[in-house]
Simulated assay, not measured.
Amino acid sequence: MTDHVLIERPEAHPGVQVIRFNRPEKKNAITRDMYAKMTNALTVASTDPAVRATAFLGTDGCFSAGNDMADFLAFAMGGSMGMEVIEFLRALATATKPVVSGVDGLAIGIGTTIHLHCDLTIASERSVFKTPFVDLALVPEAASSLIAPRIMGHQRAFALLAAGEPLTAGEAVDAGLIWKIVDADAVERETLALAGRLAKKPPEALRIARDLVRGDRSEVLARIDEEAKHFAAQLKSAEARTAFEAFMRR
Score class of each variant (00 low, 15 high):
V5F: 03
L6K: 08
E8D: 08
R9K: 08
E11V: 11
H13Q: 09
G15K: 07
N22H: 15
R23C: 08
E25R: 10
N28D: 04
Y35R: 10
Y35N: 13
K37S: 09
M38K: 04
M38I: 12
N40S: 15
N40D: 09
A41E: 01
A41W: 01
A41Q: 01
A45I: 00
S46E: 11
T47I: 08
D48K: 08
D48I: 04
A50F: 03
A53E: 06
A53C: 11
T59Q: 15
D60T: 14
C62V: 14
A65R: 11
A65D: 15
M69F: 12
M69P: 07
A70D: 15
F72S: 02
G82Q: 02
G82H: 02
M83Q: 12
E84A: 15
I86R: 14
L89M: 12
L89V: 06
A93Q: 03
A95G: 08
V99I: 11
V100P: 00
S101F: 02
G105A: 03
L106T: 12
L106A: 02
L106R: 08
C118W: 00
D119M: 04
A123Q: 03
A123D: 06
A123I: 06
S124A: 15
S124F: 05
R126M: 05
S127H: 05
S127E: 03
V128T: 14
T131I: 13
P132Q: 13
F133Q: 01
L138Y: 02
L138W: 02
L138E: 01
A143R: 01
A157W: 01
E171N: 06
A172G: 09
G176H: 05
I181Y: 03
E188Q: 13
R197Q: 14
R197G: 05
K201I: 06
P202W: 03
P202C: 07
P203K: 00
E204I: 13
R207I: 02
D216V: 04
R217K: 12
R217Y: 03
I224Q: 05
E226Y: 11
H230L: 10
A233I: 10
L235E: 00
L235Y: 05
S237W: 10
A240V: 10
R241M: 14
A243I: 13
A246D: 13
A246V: 13
F247G: 08
